[in-house]
């Protein structure tokens, strides 16, 4: 039965993160904030980042989304707290390359739990769900308001 293939996408860790997301909510004092949308499926993600002493001291996310986008956001927050913005941007790069799936020998240890989202590469329609939080992080850190990113996050509508 073909539903068994879903196990590659919806691993238990992913379902757990989605059901009980880490760092979900709002920060008292955010230094960077952004809202990104995935117009294809209606997902909305608000991300708040606090940078102190050259490091990401805290992150929080909120919004609506599917299992993959919520789990990915939760895993991302776990992975980047304590990192410098430059390190975090490097992680965004590794995550993107992992999801695109065309580099076989990528070192994924830096991603923590998020490396389990590697299976999303086999589900092209869901790549944008997994990358939404990471693109939000990248944009929050680089000051891009995300409006120029629409082409990366959306696909054509009917």
């Amino acid at each position: 039965m073909a539903l068994s293939k879903l196990d590659n996408l919806y691993r238990q860790v992913i379902l757990d993160h989605s059901a009980h997301p880490h760092h979900h909510g709002h920060l008292q004092q955010a230094t960077n904030e952004i809202e990104l949308r995935n117009p294809t499926c209606g997902d909305v993600l608000q991300l708040e980042v606090a940078v102190a002493d050259g490091k990401i001291s805290d992150v929080a996310f909120s919004g609506d989304g599917c299992t993959i986008s919520q789990a990915s956001a939760s895993m991302m927050t776990d992975a980047v707290i304590g990192k410098t913005p430059a390190e975090a941007e490097q992680m965004v790069q590794v995550f993107s390359e992992m999801i695109i799936g065309d580099k076989p020998n990528l070192d994924l240890t830096v991603l923590g739990d998020a490396s389990i989202l590697e299976g999303v590469a086999k589900f092209p329609a869901r790549i944008k769900c997994a990358t939404l939080a990471w693109k939000a992080l990248n944009n929050a850190l680089t000051g891009d308001d995300g409006k120029g990113m629409a082409h990366l996050l959306s696909s054509h509508e009917e």
């Binding site: 539903l3 879903l6 499926c41 599917c66 993959i68 509508e157 009917e158």
Partner: peptide, 26 residues
């Protein structure tokens, strides 16, 4: 309890093609 995008991926694995999203009607 299930986002329509997750539901549509499940149906796709069963060979059933449906749409999930806001259907250009936000």
């Amino acid at each position: 309890g299930l986002h329509p995008h997750d539901l549509a991926t499940g149906l796709d694995m069963e060979g059933v093609a449906v749409r999930a999203g806001h259907h250009c009607a936000q």
